[in-house]
Simulated assay, not measured.
Amino acid sequence: MTDSSAFSAAAAPSSRAQAAPLGHLAVLQAQGADAVEFLHGQLTQDVKSLDASHARLAGYCTAKGRLLATAVVWRQPAEEPAIRALVDAGVAPAWQKRLSMFVLRAKVRIAPLPLQAFGVSAGPAALAALATGAGAELPRAAWARAELPSGTWIGAPAAGAALRWWWLAEAGREGALAGAADPAPAEAWRAADIAAGLPWITAATQDLFIPQTLNLDLAGGVSFTKGCYPGQEVVARSHYLGKLKRRSFAGLVRAGVADPSALPPADIFHDGDAQPCGRVVNAADTASGTALLFECTLAAAHAGGLRLGAPDGLAIELQALPYALGEDAA
């Protein structure tokens, strides 16, 4: 297994910050007196214990425990309770519609927000200039959140030495970092998300995976003590009974793909086997090749010889993840 920084373009420290527009992400807001209680009963995350200075990863499942969305969620300061969620733009409209179906008499309104998402990364030498542009010191820890003059800043997990943030900017604030950060491609940010082991459910991968097979529990996105939510029985059963047979892994294909975003949910094969052993979750183009986050059987991953798309397809090199897969991956 090789170092994940091989495909994490955003991991290398620089004297200048890097800012990538993340047009593939959108923001939804649930606001109203019952917003916290409502989402607490819908997501895999413990929304009630979420304080205003942190964000968390969360999943939204079907009754069978299959993920329909993954999201970064946080409390937004407002006169009424408000929870915001950063989610893949391709699933946002359907998720909004589905959540709205279950509001019933709850006092909560769910709507998209016209915020622009950016992925910002910086090494130590770039932090002073970045703080000037942002309007204050930025949070240094993953999942720490701050409301600054330039917008909302959330520390993103990183596999490399650079610090990373999701920056949510309102109209008129997009240029705040013009003198402090260089433009960067969204693909570099996607690759850094893969290196960090962050799974994003897209329209192509809805209803395919349970949270644990995407390592959502290892990334802090599942609470096993919060109580009921759609799919909770399936998720809890997978957690408490026996060992998991599938997990997600990071990989690198030493060849470029014309459109990495179209790869999910391409099949993963073990060398020579006719039946697929896994599926691509996310993919991104890098200077080293195509970075993959893929779900796979533990047996096939440990045996090696993984192939993309066909039994004789392109070879996949496993990359290290920043969290341990646990005893079930031994």
Rank of each mutant, 00 (worst) to 15 (best):
A274N: 07
P124G: 07
V27F: 01
E147F: 00
A89E: 09
I194K: 00
K245H: 13
L148R: 14
G59S: 11
S248C: 15
S261W: 02
G251K: 03
V120Q: 01
L325M: 04
V281Q: 15
A330C: 12
A255I: 07
T286M: 11
D267R: 14
L67W: 04
G32V: 04
P185Y: 05
F7L: 06
P264W: 02
A181L: 01
D51K: 01
A171Y: 07
A35N: 04
L50I: 00
T62N: 05
A134R: 02
L321K: 03
A69I: 07
P185D: 13
E137Q: 11
Q42D: 06
A35W: 07
T70F: 05
C296T: 01
P211T: 06
H40I: 09
E295T: 06
W165P: 00
A266K: 00
R247K: 12
H239A: 08
Q96F: 03
G23A: 14
P183L: 07
A324C: 01
D267I: 02
G155I: 10
V103Q: 02
A324Q: 04
I154A: 10
L148V: 06
C61E: 09
S248M: 15
G227Q: 12
P311T: 14
D271S: 14
R190H: 11
T44V: 08
R247H: 06
A283D: 10
L138F: 06
W153R: 04
P114E: 06
A125V: 03
A180Y: 01
L177A: 08
S4I: 02
H302I: 14
A142H: 08
L25W: 10
I194Q: 02
P211A: 10
V47G: 04
Q206C: 11
K226C: 10
A136Y: 05
L68G: 08
G242N: 03
C228I: 13
S49W: 02
E327G: 12
A236F: 10
S288M: 12
A262H: 03
A144E: 12
Q206E: 13
P311Q: 07
K48S: 07
W166G: 05
A162C: 11
I316T: 07
V47L: 01
P311W: 03
V36Y: 09
R164K: 11
A299H: 08
A258V: 04
R254K: 15
A71V: 09
Q275L: 12
A129L: 06
A82C: 13
Q42E: 07
V281R: 13
T132E: 15
A89D: 09
A192H: 04
P211F: 13
D46Q: 02
R75I: 00
V72E: 15
V47R: 06
A141Q: 15
L50M: 05
E80Q: 15
H239S: 06
Q18T: 13
A181R: 05
